[in-house]
């Protein structure tokens, strides 16, 4: 780039930097927009009237030709669908509370089970620790289908099938949060603990008073991540819950066919809201947690 006459090197450098920055910003912005596009589609689609939606999607059916063209702002916005959904469709709420229940139970359970376990892995040495941890990691990575049948049988034996416990219990003992939290527990300096120990603190105290607060971020990030995970559970409920009235919302949405695309979108948006809320609030923790997880290699 040629320096304009009268500009000194630093100014050039600055301009360069600014341009670079501008470019970067542009690129990043574009990426962001691209990534957020589907969400926007959803949002706008949810208020598109049924007829218009049908019109738009017509090319997708064998009858239509041409392309699906997306209009961002619908011609005839239809908020009535929201009203319908929220105020006149009790079935939706049954499912909603199912999701809430499942997610809540799982999260609670996970906190109770995974947090101490991660603490144990992080701070203590014990027999077979490495091996056990490796096992945990593997279990985390194994797709659900691998153990699906055997889990089914175990649950059946206990009579949990067709109740929410069938979904909750295995998820509670998922090893993923252990993994996440392990990372964040690792960041705590041992010296701190040692000091506390020397002060006469018991292990429980160490855990409760020192470990937990320090790893708060990590815990929250785990919670957020897991919330998102649980809110979207599909495979387990599909396999273990036969009774439709026990289904979570995440299972219901795919059932809605494309002919009710508008309704599907509306329902999706409503389903989205809690996730977004949690995400919104937990964002910082999420980032924090992820960083924590990420730093210590």
């Amino acid at each position: 780039m040629q320096a304009a006459p009268g500009m000194d090197g630093e100014a050039v450098e600055k301009m360069r930097r600014r341009m670079k920055r501008g470019m970067a910003v542009v690129v990043l912005a574009a990426l962001a927009v691209l990534l957020c596009l589907p969400v926007a589609m959803l949002l706008f689609g949810s208020v598109t009237g049924d007829y218009e939606m049908w019109e738009r999607l017509l090319p997708m059916t064998p009858a239509g030709n041409g392309y699906v063209r997306w209009r961002w702002i619908p011609e005839f916005p239809d908020f009535s669908r929201y009203a319908n959904l929220l105020f006149a469709t009790p079935q939706f709420f049954v499912l909603f509370w199912n999701s809430v229940k499942i997610t809540g139970l799982i999260l609670a359970g996970q906190l109770l089970a995974a947090v101490p376990a991660a603490w144990a892995f992080a701070r203590y040495d014990f027999w077979m620790k490495k091996a056990l941890f490796a096992v945990y990691v593997i279990l985390m990575l194994l797709p659900f289908q691998v153990t699906m049948l055997s889990q089914y049988l175990v649950l059946d034996r206990f009579g949990f099938l067709d109740t929410h416990w069938a979904v909750v219990l295995p998820a509670v003992f998922s090893t993923f949060p252990v993994f996440l939290l392990y990372r964040s527990f690792l960041t705590i300096p041992e010296s701190l603990l040692e000091a506390a120990r020397m002060d006469g603190a018991g292990e429980g105290y160490l855990f409760w008073r020192i470990g937990l607060p320090l790893a708060e971020g990590g815990i929250w990030s785990a919670v957020v991540l897991n919330f998102l995970e649980c809110w979207n559970l599909i495979e387990q409920p599909l396999a273990f819950l036969k009774e439709q009235s026990l289904w979570p919302l995440s299972l219901y949405l795919p059932q809605i066919g494309l002919e009710r695309a508008g309704f599907a979108m509306t329902a999706s948006v409503v389903t989205l809201v809690p996730a977004l809320l949690v995400f919104g609030f937990g964002k910082e923790y999420l980032e924090q947690g992820i960083s924590a997880a990420g730093t210590k290699g």
């Binding site: 990534l35 957020c36 589907p38 969400v39 589609m41 959803l42 999607l57 090319p59 997708m60 239509g64 030709n65 041409g66 392309y67 699906v68 063209r69 997306w70 998102l228 809110w231 979207n232 599909i234 995440s250 299972l251 949405l253 795919p254 494309l258 695309a261 599907a264 979108m265 999706s268 948006v269 389903t271 989205l272 996730a275 977004l276 949690v278 995400f279 964002k283 999420l286 980032e287």
Partner: peptide, 24 residues
Amino acid sequence: LLPMAIPSATVVLVWKMVFARQGI
């Protein structure tokens, strides 16, 4: 990070519309 929050079921709808033969 937003996409991560979107439930799979939800986004599938969009994918269907985008990736159809006559899709977006």
